[in-house]
């Protein structure tokens, strides 16, 4: 192998990158600023409509805090005007495409009523 490249590798491997310094390491526990509490976790679960068991709360909360602290890396990102020339107006013509048959639509449910899907009561 080319010797300059070999030197380059050695140098690169020594480069401390902010991101990679975290690789494989434990994040210090406890996020001083804006830390998520177990109560917050419960609230988030509520918002996400996912039941969470009491005994799961502590573990979820500490994981969240580790991850959210990592997300704080985004604080350094400069906001930009959405200047990209993105593709726009991807549209289709107003032309009818045959629908699925009612049988096929209902093929994945065990219970139906007069062609309706069944769902729990709302309240």
């Amino acid at each position: 192998m080319n010797s300059t490249l070999r030197d380059r590798i050695q140098w690169l491997l020594k480069t401390v990158s902010k991101v990679h310094s975290l690789l494989g390491e434990k994040i210090p526990a406890g996020r001083q600023k804006g830390m998520i509490t177990e109560k917050d976790t419960e609230h988030i679960a509520q918002l996400a409509d996912i039941a969470i068991h009491k005994e799961e709360l502590a573990a979820f909360t500490s994981r969240f805090n580790e991850i959210l602290e990592y997300f704080d890396l985004l604080d350094q990102v400069d906001m930009v005007e959405n200047a990209e020339n993105k593709e726009c107006n991807v549209l289709r013509e107003d032309e009818i495409v045959p629908s699925l048959s009612q049988d096929k639509v209902l093929s994945n449910v065990r219970e139906q009523e007069d062609g309706f899907f069944k769902a729990p009561r709302v309240m």
Binding site: D49, N108, V109, E111, F117, K118, A119, P120, V122, M123
Partner: peptide, 21 residues
Amino acid sequence: VRYGDPADTRKTWHESFQERR
């Protein structure tokens, strides 16, 4: 509702949905 294990219609929508998830 449309596929997957049927929702439990003995519960309310939110109870059933939260447990399912």
